[in-house]
Amino acid sequence: MNDTCIFCRIARSDLPTFKLFEDDLVLAFLDLHPIREGHALIISKQHYPWFEDLPEPVAARIMSTGQRLARAMKGEWGVERVAFFFTGIHVGQTHAHVVPMLHRYDVTSVRYLEDGVEEFSLPPKPEDAALAQTADRIRTQLARAD
């Protein structure tokens, strides 16, 4: 783990988060600046800065966790599609995003580039109570699937 990485600090429970799923390899939690309600992140519990550095079992666990979350999101929001993508843009640790797609443009860069290509605008952060309620909804759907 890395002492300065925010995701490592979250994985160690040094920082609060709205956990959705956790096992020995990965942790899934709500994004604090969601594209849409339910937008989740999946991180490895070990620090891997680059996607290609992920050991195959960790990469597979991130993918299978994403699939479980996608099924839960489809059940909760009634969406046809759920986006899954890896990034490492804002935090120097590989992480996956899982986003229920209410609109076909939910995950395009246009949502982030409203200020132009040289700027970045974070989506607004919902209140903690709203995030807690969203986390409960997803965990309920996950429990139904088990």
Results as ranks from 00 to 15, higher is better:
42 I>D: 09
2 N>E: 12
136 D>L: 14
70 A>H: 05
42 I>Y: 09
127 E>S: 10
93 Q>T: 11
107 V>H: 05
125 K>M: 14
64 S>P: 00
145 A>M: 12
17 T>R: 12
96 A>R: 05
91 V>D: 02
146 D>P: 00
71 R>P: 00
48 Y>M: 06
123 P>H: 11
118 E>T: 14
89 I>N: 15
96 A>T: 04
65 T>I: 11
31 D>Q: 08
24 D>H: 15
102 L>E: 09
124 P>L: 06
96 A>C: 15
8 C>V: 06
145 A>F: 10
5 C>M: 05
87 T>W: 01
74 K>F: 03
14 D>Y: 00
119 E>T: 10
116 G>V: 01
37 E>M: 14
130 A>D: 09
37 E>K: 12
43 I>T: 05
53 D>S: 13
138 I>L: 02
134 T>I: 11
112 Y>Q: 08
15 L>M: 05
109 S>N: 09
60 A>I: 07
41 L>M: 15
79 V>P: 01
32 L>Y: 12
89 I>S: 08
60 A>V: 11
131 L>A: 05
129 A>S: 13
95 H>C: 06
68 R>Q: 15
100 P>T: 08
101 M>Y: 01
22 E>R: 13
117 V>L: 15
7 F>G: 13
115 D>F: 05
106 D>K: 01
18 F>K: 02
41 L>W: 10
86 F>T: 08
15 L>T: 08
22 E>S: 13
132 A>S: 14
36 R>P: 01
91 V>G: 02
91 V>F: 03
119 E>L: 12
97 H>Y: 07
29 F>K: 03
54 L>Y: 12
29 F>V: 04
129 A>Y: 00
127 E>V: 07
137 R>S: 11
70 A>Y: 06
96 A>V: 09
121 S>E: 13
3 D>E: 14
73 M>I: 00
50 W>V: 05
13 S>G: 10
113 L>I: 02
86 F>C: 09
81 R>I: 01
114 E>K: 15
85 F>Y: 13
63 M>R: 09
60 A>Q: 12
145 A>W: 11
112 Y>G: 07
16 P>V: 06
110 V>A: 15
12 R>Q: 15
74 K>E: 13
87 T>S: 14
108 T>A: 10
137 R>H: 10
119 E>S: 12
36 R>L: 06
133 Q>M: 02
76 E>I: 04
12 R>G: 03
132 A>L: 10
64 S>C: 04
133 Q>P: 00
63 M>L: 14
71 R>D: 07
91 V>H: 02
91 V>I: 15
44 S>P: 15
21 F>D: 03
82 V>R: 10
60 A>M: 11
5 C>E: 07
60 A>E: 14
80 E>F: 02
